[in-house]
Design a protein around this nucleic acid. Structure first.
Length: 259
DNA sequence: AAAATCACCTGTCCGC
DNA sequence: TGCGGACAGGTGATTT
């Protein structure tokens, strides 16, 4: 689930729920989810503190604390947050933060592909990991420079070091909206197509956020709810095709999206 | 240099 | 009903 739009929805969710409440206790249920921080340090550094604000960069959620660190949450393929008072049937809770007001915030991650860490700042993490510009903030000038070389356009859109935030399904959606084949070589795209892809990145992201990143709420001209070879292209009615690009399943319309 | 492969994990679905 | 394999919205290391 968690690509940029999902994480942005999580950010807004956390901002409207868990901010400003004093943390009573932290329970690390599965310590293998922690990266570069021990269970005891996480507990010691969070207990008694409060969350002050929440930011997002790419697919990462950063929560500012009243202590020394920012808490970074990455959600892998299956992560999400749940804020609740009474709830006893949530599976795969990996970190549980209890607040003095009686509520709890659960970081849930079924496949353990997510990460929880402490960072000095958002900028620190971004530069240390060489992340590209956030997909919601990137300027056309910079995007033009990024789209270069022989690589397939979809691989580039998914490369977090080039542009941060898009993943497998939103990269597919952007290319579908732009009528560009996922394997099209970057260097062979005309400037008009580059501009169209650029515009569709923000268009798709903003639309998805508005729909709470829930594909079942997407309109009929979107590919996202139709990621199946038994489905039809919403534009031309042709069959949706499935291929591998960068090892990931890619759905597209061969009639509308030519190389 | 880019793409394929594998590895990390858990769960579900499909075919035999 | 059971079992094996493929696959799932991420990412990093290693190999072609």
């Amino acid at each position: 689930m968690p690509e940029l739009p999902d994480v942005e929805v999580f950010r807004r969710y956390l901002s409207s729920t868990a901010l400003h409440q004093q943390i009573d206790s932290v329970n690390v249920v599965e310590s293998s989810i922690l990266k570069g921080v021990s269970t005891s340090k996480l507990k010691k550094s969070l207990e008694g503190e409060r969350f002050l604000s929440a930011e997002r960069y790419g697919k990462n959620l950063f929560v500012e604390t009243s202590g020394r660190y920012w808490l970074r949450l990455h959600f892998g393929m299956t992560g999400f947050l749940e804020y609740f008072k009474k709830h006893n049937d949530i599976r795969h809770v990996r970190v549980l933060i209890s607040f003095k007001n009686g509520y709890k915030l659960a970081y849930v991650c079924q496949r353990l592909l997510g990460q929880v860490s402490f960072e000095k700042s958002v900028d620190d993490f971004v530069s240390a990991n060489g992340l590209g510009p956030d997909a919601m903030q990137v300027k056309l000038k910079d995007f033009r420079n990024i789209v270069d070389g022989r690589s397939a356009i979809k691989s580039l859109l998914m490369d977090q070091k080039k542009i941060a935030g898009l993943g497998n399904i939103y990269a597919d959606e952007v290319l579908f909206q732009s009528k560009v084949h996922p394997k099209a070589a970057c260097s062979r795209l005309g400037d008009d197509k580059v501009k169209e892809i650029y515009k569709n990145i923000s268009k798709v992201i903003n639309y998805a956020i508005k729909k709470k990143a829930d594909p079942s709420k997407f309109g009929k001209n979107y590919l996202l709810p139709r990621r199946s070879t038994s489905d039809k292209c919403p534009n031309c009615g042709g069959a949706i095709k499935k291929i591998k690009v960068s090892g990931r399943s890619s759905y597209y319309c061969p009639a509308c999206q030519k190389k």
